[in-house]
């Protein structure tokens, strides 16, 4: 089997498994919507207020929803031993985990990205800001999945790893939140957002090149 075929097999397996537990898959999405609902209830559903807090709130909600999904990235595979097979396979582990993280993002991150402009409407964000939210989430959530993947790999062998995950991921994810939420805010004010978008893109490139190795090393430590 060639490396590409192995990657295809990993991807197919992820999608097949996801197809069997659709309910679990929708959970982060529901969580995202719930958090987005809580803020207008906790504050005041006034138009100006929601427009002012919308970019930040939606970004934080997306961040927390992705965090919620992260623990599932390796947990089940550690429990049933298939991760060990992956580590021992003759194919380069960084590539395999990159494929795994990619599948995870398509299944949990992408739905969030797609629905975000709709939620932005509920916060009365102008169209420009809604698109900015979509664009920043589209670029930043893969980075978040990759960064979180390193933390998930580090805690994969721990019984109570999920509680640790937030402490490990959130400080590292801070730049994403800063650029993403700020870009959305700038767009709402009618300003150009190319700068932060480029920076988010640069972070994605950095994450794609570096984190697979970190993830692979972390898995080797966890399964040792």
């Amino acid at each position: 089997m060639s490396v590409t075929a192995a990657l295809g097999a990993v991807l197919r397996r992820e999608f097949a498994l996801a197809g069997r537990r659709v309910g679990e898959l929708g959970l982060p999405l529901v969580f995202f919507l719930l958090v987005a609902t809580l803020f207008p209830l906790g504050l005041m559903p006034e138009r100006e207020l929601l427009v002012a807090i919308g970019p930040g709130v939606l970004w934080v909600a997306a961040l927390l929803a992705s965090l919620l999904a992260l623990d599932a990235l390796f947990r089940a595979d550690v429990d049933d031993g298939s991760l060990e097979q992956l580590v021992m396979s003759p194919y380069p582990l960084p590539l395999l985990v990159l494929a795994k993280a990619g599948a995870h993002w398509m299944l949990t991150g992408l739905p969030l990205v797609v629905i975000s402009p709709l939620v932005a409407q509920a916060y009365y964000l102008p169209a420009d800001a809604a698109w900015a939210l979509l664009a920043t989430l589209l670029i930043a959530t893969p980075t978040l999945t990759l960064l979180g993947g390193v933390a998930a790999a580090l805690t994969a062998g721990l019984r109570r790893g999920a509680a640790l995950l937030g402490l490990l991921v959130l400080p590292l994810a801070l730049p994403l939140l800063v650029f993403g939420a700020r870009a959305t805010e700038l767009a709402a004010a009618g300003e150009p957002i190319a700068g932060p978008l480029y920076l988010l893109g640069a972070m994605l490139a950095l994450a794609v090149t570096l984190t697979p190795w970190a993830m692979a090393a972390a898995l080797r430590i966890s399964l040792d």
Binding site: V150, A151, L154, L168, P171, L172, L174, P175, V178, F179, R182, M203, L210, A214, A217, A218, I221, S222, D224
Partner: peptide, 24 residues
């Protein structure tokens, strides 16, 4: 070993965090 890996990931991230916070 796990914590060591985390420290290395953190030290790569610190300049980015610093930059983002300054920009913000």
């Amino acid at each position: 070993r796990a914590a060591a890996l985390l420290a290395i990931v953190g030290v790569v991230n610190i300049p980015i965090i610093k930059f983002s916070v300054d920009w913000w």
